[in-house]
Amino acid sequence: MRFVSAEQVARRAGVSRSAVSRTFTPGASVSPATREKVMHAAQELGYHVNDLARGVLNNQSRLVGIVATRPEVGFRAHLTAALSKVLIKRGNVPILINTGQTEEELVAAQKMLIGHRAEATIILSGSPPASFFELARRNGQPVVMIGRSEPDADHVRAGNSEASQQAALAFLAAGRRRFAFAGSHSATPAILERETAFVAAVEAAGFTVRVARGRDSDYDSGVVAARQLMADREDLPDAVFCANDLIAFGLMDVMRLEAGLAVPDDLAVIGFDDVPEAAWLNYRLTTFRQDPDVMARRAVELLERRLANPDAEPDVERVIPLIVYRDSFRGKM
């Protein structure tokens, strides 16, 4: 595969190679007649500037690494897409680094992160190990964390505690009294925060919370959590707060199909994220909306501030999710 070169454009336009370079360099001096000939030749040949080579010469790659574990799952998929759009609009080249789940995959991902001399790194929630943050920091890369916490980094955080407390109060106000939380053993910071805040709010009102967990934060974990809660058929919950929407989908399907419960009459369910499937007719899930576009914009704003002032104190952008009421729970605050 051969890309059209600047030398070919120069020959077609009848100008020097340096004239082509100046034409495509913002602010460089080039006569209007030369510029017109070069641009006409470039359009005929389909020429585009080699930004990668130019970045290497200027020691500025314009690459931004997006680091995630299982980026295809749930809200992370929508956040990754939103980040890509915002970064491309800014003039960056997003490079998705899937950390994988084995030691070999982690090592390969770390080499990719540093080997391509990314301008900055954005690390998503989930389970990318802290070593990714340390590696980026040691190499002088600005780092923005989304949905997790590391010292000396800029952060975008969802209002997990506020939303979880609101879910508990909404269930209590609706007269629900048998509470459960459906989470996962992945124990990401966001899920731990949601579980802790929900349990604390319910216990402060004088009630207890049964906690059920699957292995990961996905549909299958919702299935596992539901079957754990069904183990005692005499004490089925009447209100479940789920760590995310995917868990809620699995739990609702099992509770309806295997336990014979009606949602929301027998069982009220609230999720977290508001992925598009939450509005599907089979679920109509009441959930807390995290807006991936808002979070992506906040992350890039933090990145721009850090690049402009590398020595500034770490900054935090907090995004409070709003509850979206649908059919799985109709209570109002």
Results as ranks from 00 to 15, higher is better:
7 E>S: 13
17 R>E: 01
17 R>P: 01
20 V>N: 00
22 R>G: 04
24 F>A: 07
27 G>N: 03
27 G>W: 01
29 S>A: 12
29 S>Y: 09
40 H>T: 14
46 G>Q: 08
48 H>R: 14
48 H>S: 12
50 N>M: 02
81 A>V: 11
87 L>W: 02
87 L>C: 09
88 I>Y: 08
101 Q>T: 13
104 E>H: 06
114 I>E: 00
120 A>S: 13
137 R>H: 14
138 R>F: 10
139 N>S: 01
145 M>R: 04
148 R>M: 11
151 P>V: 13
155 H>R: 15
161 S>E: 15
163 A>D: 03
166 Q>S: 14
166 Q>W: 11
168 A>F: 12
173 A>G: 15
179 F>N: 09
182 A>R: 07
193 E>D: 14
195 E>I: 03
199 V>R: 15
201 A>P: 07
203 E>P: 04
216 D>W: 09
219 Y>E: 07
220 D>Y: 07
227 R>W: 05
228 Q>G: 05
232 D>Y: 12
233 R>D: 00
234 E>A: 15
235 D>G: 09
236 L>W: 03
238 D>Q: 03
245 D>W: 10
249 F>D: 02
255 M>N: 04
261 L>K: 09
272 F>R: 03
286 T>H: 01
290 Q>N: 07
294 V>M: 11
297 R>E: 14
301 E>G: 09
310 P>I: 10
317 E>W: 07
317 E>K: 13
317 E>Q: 14
324 V>K: 13
327 D>V: 02
328 S>M: 08
